[in-house]
Every structure is written in C-alpha cells, then in structure tokens.
Design a protein around this nucleic acid. Structure first.
Lengths: 240, 240
DNA sequence: GGAATACTTCGGCCGTTACCGAAGCGTTCC
DNA sequence: GGAACGCTTCGGTAACGGCCGAAGTATTCC
C-alpha cells in the first residue's frame, strides 16, 4: 500500500505478531516443539479455518516453517531470530503500565523445569546456570556469556562441542530472563545443546500438551553429580 | 476485548509497532536523539494531528518518553529494551522473502560513522570493535561480549568505568549487527559509554537532521592513537 | 467402499482504527 | 496587543482485516 522505501517491512512483521490470536500461537511455539494447526487453534481460541489463515500468513512471511506429516501439519518457529524477537517483545510487555499481570506460570511443574524455545528454563535451569558460573565453566555478565577453557573441557566431557563457536552466527551463549524467577538462565547455542543432552540422557522428558519438563530419577542424580548442584536447588528464591 | 490471561500484552505491543507510520517514527528514533512531534510527522509522512494520536498511544504504552520544552515536545525511546525489540524486529524484516530491499544506507557519511540508538555504528565502530578484540580488551563470541581485566584498565584510562557491570540489568557489552556492513559492532552499556566518551572529547560530532557522525581532526588522531587503529580502517570490506 | 479426521478455501459480516479537515489550546516572537 | 507556530482534540469517513459458517480437498481408519 504505502511505498516507503525501508523501515516499513519491520511494520509488516510487527503487524503479523500484533494480533492476539497469532501472538498466542507464537507464544505456544516458544515452547520449542512443533505443533499442529489444530493444537495452535486451541491455544489461540479461534476456529480451525481462522487459524489456517493466520498460519498461512505467518508461513508466507517466514516466521513459521511447516512440515507435512500425513494429515497433520506441524508448525514451528522458522529461525532462532524469530524466537529472539518474540522474547524481546515479551520483555517489553512485562514492563508496561502496572495494571494486572499474572506473575509467571502457576503450575509448580512449570516453575521447576520447562522449555523456553530450544533451551531449559525454571528453577532447574537457574541451578545449572549458577553451577556453571560457580565452577568457572562460563562467564556471565548481564546478557552476555562466554565459555572458558575449563568450560570447554567440561562440556566436551558431556558430549557437547563448543569449539566451533565462532563459526555460526547464532550466539553460543546468551542469557534469557527467566519468566517465573526473573533471573537469567542460559540460552543460545549452549542452552540448546544442554537441553538436547539432557533429553538424550533421559534426565528430563517432555510432557504431552505442555512446556513442562519432568525431571527423572536418573536426572535427579545425574544433574546433581555432573553439575555439583547444592542440595537446596529446588527451593525458590535462593540466589546463587 | 479478549481476556486471555497472558501472551496477550505482547500482541498489544507488537500491534503498536505494526503500523507503518508508527514504525517509521520508531526507526527514526533509533538514531538515538530525541525528536519533536513535527519531525516525527515528517519522517512518518502523515499530518501533525495523526502523528499526535500515534505518539500519545506509544507514550501511554511506555514505548516512548516525552519531554516538554517550550512549545516543542521531544520524544525518545523510553528504554534500551524498546531499542532492543525494534532491533530484533529489524533482523527479522531483513530476512524475509527475497524481494526488493535497499542494502544499507546510501550516504557515504552514514556508512563511515553514525549513531545506532545510543552507540556508534558504521566503519568506525567496526574498526573500534576489531581493535578491542585484537588488543584483548573484550572477548566477543556471536552476539555476546565480555570485558577482560586488561580491558577494565584500558577503559578506566578512557574515563569509562565498567566495574559496576553486574549492578545494572542493562547488558554491559553486547553486539549489534551493523546495518551497512553486516558485521557486529559493540553495543550495550559499553557501546553507549564509548559514544559518550567520543562526543565529550570532540572526536565525533552529531550532524543536524541526520544519524551521521562527523569524525573531527582530533578524532582522527585520537582514535588512531588510543585504539591503535590500522591505517586502512576506512576501507570497506576489510575484515579484522 | 464409507465414515471420520485434519486442514483449506470462499463469502459475507462487522469491529477497529488510521486518516484528514476543522477548530482549539498554549508558547513564542515582534 | 496580534500573528505565527507547535501541538492536541474532535468528528466523520473509508478501508483493512479478523471472524465464523458452509463447503471442498486430502488422508487415515475400519
């Protein structure tokens, strides 16, 4: 419509996100798993045909990626950049006027451990971040993070390779403000690798229909041993 | 209207940004300077009364902050978080379908040195970032950055205190993808401090009606000496 | 084969909102 | 004082776009 040269396409992207139904779908996809059109419709609270239109637009704009599987269509966030943008908007929304706002997830399971796009969040993630800092494996300073040499060896022992760090444009390690606890946990490529590794070892398992992660008995002892977690890491509000 | 518990206010924020006129105003404010309502109207290409409505909404939502000065009203981005969110959306918009898109600022002065919200961008900023990494003052790894001990001393010599790093929630050092050069430069609190310092020393001066920074003769030699810049730092496309 | 499921396309309704003209306030300049 | 300027408020118009019902296309299950 308007033919302004630039600074306009940002409006198009924001316009897509700036609809309640679509925003709810995107928020649901921040859980990291691919969801079907039907599941997204339920999350958004609109009918299937309305959802279909929304998904087509977001896919067209490369916010989402689709995968056909039988009669289902699985949608996921197209890139980490999309998750990053949504995260930045969430941070803005969290500020705002001091009107009513529910503070974090109610569900105790969600507060303990959940996924946040492609990495872990909740008390468990905070305990891991604290441990990595305490043991000198990563250095964190307000939003930025770096893996130390000592850390490289440590992660290598967990089967996580971080040497190719500078190759990818994707941040190796960045922090992400934990929704329920309001403290930073580890995101970025390292955060994703930690989640993958934990899932592979069976230390945590995804829950159906939820972003919650269930901590297994193996995980209970595995995390504690590998990361030297303090015994009280489950207690809320304990800093460091 | 809809009374979904959460994940909704993100839609409200995005909805605000998702209008061409408002997005253009925000993009103009990414230059870092406060602008009057009239200037913003010209940037957006709409009348004063339309602009007034837009500005009221964005101020109400705490995206913008106002300052009255005589018969003028100066608007600026309310917080660094707002700049961060807009930046993330710009990154998304830059991806998108491969249709027509102008590649970076045309003006040579803009490519050499300009402001990006509260820090420097352009060839100069890239040369500074390269220097800081080469001299071991900061460590950069994909989007994240940390100041070394050596760096703390260096910045202290420039009158920049970085010890209070962990106090503020605002990232001390983070990178920002340079629009014209597609390489990261230094943003965050450190980036802002570098710009402030350079302005104070008269090494660069702001240009009227533009985001461009003019490099002074004092700056020419000052930057070269303090940061040990290579002689060819002005040449485009030179990595490191 | 037929029925059920998952998703899409089409058409029409209706609420939201961006836009501008006109008019109103407050400030500055002469 | 009056005129010019910067910005805001009000009212009416026009259009964009989200929504659902109905109908249509795949795919799976029995």
């Amino acid at each position: 419509m308007t033919n302004l040269p630039s600074g306009n396409s940002i409006a198009e992207v924001a316009h897509l996100i700036g609809d309640a139904a679509r925003a709810n779908m995107l928020a649901a996809l921040m859980g990291g798993r691919a969801l079907t059109a039907g599941e997204l419709a339920r999350h958004a609270g609109v009918t299937a045909q309305t959802t279909s239109g929304h998904l087509a637009k977001m896919t067209e704009a490369r916010l989402l990626a689709v995968e056909k599987q039988g009669r289902h269509r699985y949608y996921r966030l197209a890139t980490a950049d999309v998750a990053q943008a949504i995260h930045a908007l969430m941070a803005l929304a969290a500020d705002g006027p001091p009107r009513y706002r529910p503070v974090g997830p109610r569900d105790a399971a969600l507060r303990l451990a959940r996924t946040c796009y492609d990495h872990m969040a909740g008390r468990l993630a905070l305990a891991l971040a604290d441990s990595l800092v305490r043991e000198g494996h990563v250095l964190l300073a307000d939003g930025a993070g770096l893996v130390t040499e000592r850390g490289e060896a440590f992660f290598s022992g967990l089967g996580i390779d971080v040497t190719g760090a500078t190759q990818s444009r994707r941040p190796l390690c960045r922090t992400c403000l934990d929704w329920s606890e309001r403290r930073p946990h580890i995101a970025g490529r390292l955060g994703a690798a930690l989640l993958d590794s934990a899932l592979e070892r069976g230390w945590v398992v995804r829950q159906a229909e939820s972003r919650a992660l269930r901590l297994t008995r193996a995980g209970e002892s595995g995390f504690a041993a590998a990361f030297r977690l303090p015994s009280d890491w489950r207690v809320e509000g304990v800093a460091q």
